[in-house]
Amino acid sequence: MMRHLPTCYNPTKWVLGLMWLVIAFAGCQSQQDQAGAATPPPVGHYEGSITLAGQPAMRAALDIRHPSPGHYEAELTVPTTGTLSFVADTIFFNDNQLRLRRPARPTQVLNLTLDGDFWRGSLDLDSAKAEIILLKRGMPTPSTYRVEELAQDGGSAWLFSPSDTGTPGAALALLPDTETAPAAALWADALAREGIIVLMLPAVDSASAPLETPRLQVALNVLRATPGADTASIGVWAAGMRAAALAESMTGPGALQAAFVIIQNVSLSSGTRTALRELRNQKVPILALYGGSNATPQQALLMRNALGGRRGAPVRTYRGAGPDLLVPNALSTRFGPGLPNEVVAWLHSQ
């Protein structure tokens, strides 16, 4: 489901657009509704395999659900390569042809043709294409999470919210930079599957505390209003320059209030060091992550010193991964060693 916000992506208009979402939670129609009386996709649970030429087959499952009148959603699950799994809130189905495009990652597309109880087709990702065949096994499994696009000029925000809202859980605003943006949807999916609500903001190529503060404030308000969010456990994960801007926006007069902070690949200027020390004095939990060329012992030592020099300070380096904390793989990148479990465990401990 997509909500269209008639705003440009600048701090003021972005704030007004998301405030409109929070205050005037207006109903909207899915693209399935707009299509009128089109043939609905076949609801069910399908199992099979994905095969890339020259590679071992991977188990896969597809669930097509009908959660509300006029609305359908689908979920692809690849247990051995979690970065391929995703939930699609919009289904394109016509003349036995099914097409699913991954939210916030448009280069990953599932194209299938219905043949009796079978789906046959391909999973396309960037320039790679893998064959996929699935057989109907019964009714769909329960939904893992739902995803919603908050559309606007200049980029979309995406809300990943677990389906089970009975037990309040952590929530975070995810602020990628241009280097980590392609992996942001993979992280949002992985965290949502562990019960963590994620609001993924569009990437920006520059950041400062004055620019980030207003849109971050509204993002935190959106998360507080999301069903299932523990309002005492709402934080922010920011990368690169946005991480430095985040730290500075949480100190001084009119500072943002967040329950925890994850900073990724942050460079330590004197201003950032000062801000981080103040956050530690305020006892704000901070997890620092470094990947790729940033993941050096020297960088980890500098960050530990900035966090007060305590042994065991939560600074994690992943030298075998890229800046996005992923490692290359045949069809899709994978999470670096120990990920996403180490991040999930830290979040659940807060």
Rank of each mutant, 00 (worst) to 15 (best):
W158T: 01
A300V: 11
I286N: 01
N294A: 14
A38R: 04
V198G: 00
I197T: 15
P106T: 02
Q257I: 06
Q257L: 08
G70Y: 09
I23H: 13
L211K: 04
A330W: 04
A255F: 03
D115Y: 05
L326W: 02
A88L: 07
A243R: 03
A207N: 02
Q97R: 12
G138K: 10
D177G: 10
R334S: 07
I133M: 08
I263G: 00
F25A: 13
A130V: 13
L339Q: 07
R280G: 01
S49V: 11
A74M: 07
P40K: 12
S163R: 12
S122I: 07
I133Q: 10
A238S: 11
T333N: 14
Q55C: 11
L287E: 02
K129T: 08
P42R: 13
I64P: 02
M200Y: 04
G166Q: 12
L246P: 04
E212Q: 15
Q55E: 15
M58C: 07
F93Y: 15
A345Q: 15
Q55M: 14
A306N: 15
K13Y: 12
L287W: 03
A184W: 13
A24V: 13
G17I: 01
G48R: 02
L246F: 05
A306K: 10
V344C: 04
P176F: 05
Q34F: 11
M139R: 10
A57L: 06
A35T: 09
D205F: 11
I286T: 01
V343R: 06
R101Q: 15
S122W: 08
P168G: 00
S349H: 14
P69F: 09
T90E: 15
W187G: 03
V43A: 12
A239V: 07
L110Q: 08
M250C: 10
N305W: 09
G82F: 01
A24M: 06
T317Y: 02
S49H: 12
T51Q: 12
T90I: 03
A275R: 03
A190G: 03
G17V: 01
P227F: 09
Q31P: 09
G308F: 04
D124H: 14
A244C: 09
P176H: 10
H71R: 08
K136R: 15
M200T: 05
L84Y: 13
A295I: 10
R310N: 15
F260S: 01
L276H: 02
F118W: 15
L16G: 04
E47W: 12
L125E: 08
W346R: 01
T272I: 10
A53T: 14
R304F: 07
A190C: 06
G54L: 03
L62K: 02
Q32C: 12
K129P: 03
N221T: 14
G291P: 12
K136P: 01
I133K: 14
